[in-house]
Write a protein that binds this DNA or RNA. Structure first.
Length: 156
DNA sequence: GCCAACGTTGGC
DNA sequence: GCCAACGTTGGC
């Protein structure tokens, strides 16, 4: 069992948007960074724990719990000339971008980026490293447990 | 809008 | 294969 943090821009796909989908499940489309892709393609397993994170918004932070809900498969948007995620170098025969489905299991309070930064046990989180831009990052079991504990508290 | 960080591109 | 220029991410 592995744990992950996955960023989504709520203007494009919020946790509420996913909850409104069938089975509260969404294909994690649009990743165009090789390291993030490789996490999905090579390391994610069914039912891995996922922190659903809202980025590029007024209050960035963890907003829900989710799980990996499929094995990897090609991201359809890479083949769609009308999509902003279209990749002319990808083909059906040689897809370049793989994704997994993510199922939201629970919406939580917003555990803000500022609150994450303020916690002594989370200073090593990849998300919090200076200059980090990765949209998918691994979370250690202690970090996962700490964050679940924070989510169980009322907002501070 | 600014800017730090870093990935990608393309000339050589 | 190097590396400068450029583009993107994402918080502030």
């Amino acid at each position: 069992m592995n744990y992950w943090l996955m960023k989504s821009e709520p203007e494009e796909c919020s946790v509420d948007d996913v909850l409104a989908m069938p089975n509260a499940t969404v294909p994690w489309f649009g990743v165009r960074n090789y390291l993030a892709r490789n996490f999905m393609r090579d390391q994610m397993r069914l039912q891995d724990g996922v922190l659903f994170y809202h980025s590029s918004c007024a209050l960035p932070g963890v907003v829900g719990l989710a799980e990996v809900a499929s094995t990897p498969y090609p991201d359809a948007t890479q083949f769609d000339a009308g999509s902003k995620y279209f990749d002319p170098k990808a083909s059906l025969e040689a897809p370049r971008w793989q994704l997994v489905d993510v199922r939201v299991t629970r919406k939580t309070r917003t555990l803000s980026l500022a609150e994450l930064r303020a916690h002594a046990d989370l200073t090593e989180m990849i998300l919090l490293r200076r200059g980090n831009r990765l949209s998918i990052t691994p979370i250690t079991p202690p970090e996962w447990n700490t964050i679940l504990g924070l989510l169980a508290e009322s907002s501070t």
